[in-house]
């Protein structure tokens, strides 16, 4: 985000926002076109390729057998990881995940965790000994803004189409049958990201808008319209902003949830 944005560009975006327009012709509260392609990767237990306009994200889910955390012997586990691979943007550098990649992974993780989208109790093979560990790997392939929502759609869609084999434990021996079952997914969290420029809230900012945002907010809605995770980024927001964001977000989250359900049918 350290790009120096041309003043003339900033002014232009601001000027047209005043008449409720955006550079790409969208309304303030309109998403770019969303495309979801489930089961893109054969070597993954589940996967989805998602595009949000020119932003492209690939999410793969892998399952491994491992030991449960000591404090939750009756639960499986999942780990969310995000890679901003350098082929996705001239500003991404090779190397271990930076703060942006870590924040991205943690926001997606929190939405899934707090909506209890994954029924972790059903991922136990033998309590206290062996459980399924689900890896959600988010790969950003082209960065044109709003990585959060694209990644969330990808992560949830990938989980919904994930199948894992049936595993049993007999003494110390684990047997894995060639019989596949769907991952126990019982909720569909949907993140909605809005940016603020001057006094306008805009949905699904593209990268040019993100670079001049005063503030950004991501809200994660679960089914029954509950809010399960929120992250504010950059500068300050008012209570009114938040109320407006929730109102806009609620409707959109239902639409997107429906799209995800359709896509993985």
């Amino acid at each position: 985000m350290s790009e120096i944005v041309a003043t003339i560009r900033k002014n232009y975006i601001r000027k047209i926002l005043r008449s409720n327009k955006r550079m790409d012709g969208r309304n303030l509260t309109e998403y770019r076109e969303i495309k979801i392609e489930p089961n893109f990767i054969k070597n993954a237990e589940g996967s989805a390729m998602v595009s949000l306009g020119n932003t492209q994200v690939l999410v793969g889910v892998k399952a491994e057998i491992g030991e449960p955390y000591p404090d939750s012997p009756d639960k499986g586990a999942f780990i969310t990881n995000a890679e901003l691979v350098p082929l996705a943007s001239p500003s991404f550098e090779p190397g271990p995940p930076d703060e942006n990649a870590i924040e991205l992974a943690r926001i997606i993780d929190r939405g899934i965790r707090h909506s209890e989208a994954l029924d972790l109790k059903k991922l136990v093979i033998q309590e206290g000994k062996k459980v399924w560990i689900i890896f959600i790997d988010i790969h950003v392939l082209n960065h044109d803004g709003n990585l959060f929502d694209a990644s969330n759609i990808g992560a949830v869609a990938a989980l919904l189409c994930t199948k894992i084999p049936v595993a049993k434990m007999d003494g110390e021996e684990i047997t894995v049958e060639n019989k596949w079952v769907k991952l126990p997914v019982k909720n569909i969290p949907v993140t909605i990201t809005l940016g603020k420029i001057d006094d306008k809230l805009i949905l699904d900012p593209v990268i040019e808008e993100e670079e001049i945002l005063d503030a950004k907010i991501t809200i994660c809605f679960e089914k029954n319209d509950l809010i399960c995770a929120v992250q504010k980024i950059h500068g300050p927001l008012t209570t009114e902003d938040l109320e407006e964001a929730i109102e806009i977000g609620l409707d959109k989250s239902r639409e997107i949830r429906k799209m995800i359900e359709e896509a993985v049918k």
Binding site: I41, N43, G60, K62, E64, F135, D137, H139
Partner: peptide, 18 residues
Amino acid sequence: CKYSMSPFSTPERKKPGP
């Protein structure tokens, strides 16, 4: 040149990292 494999590219998960 940088050749890299994504974590879900192989039957066994490829650990991300250097």
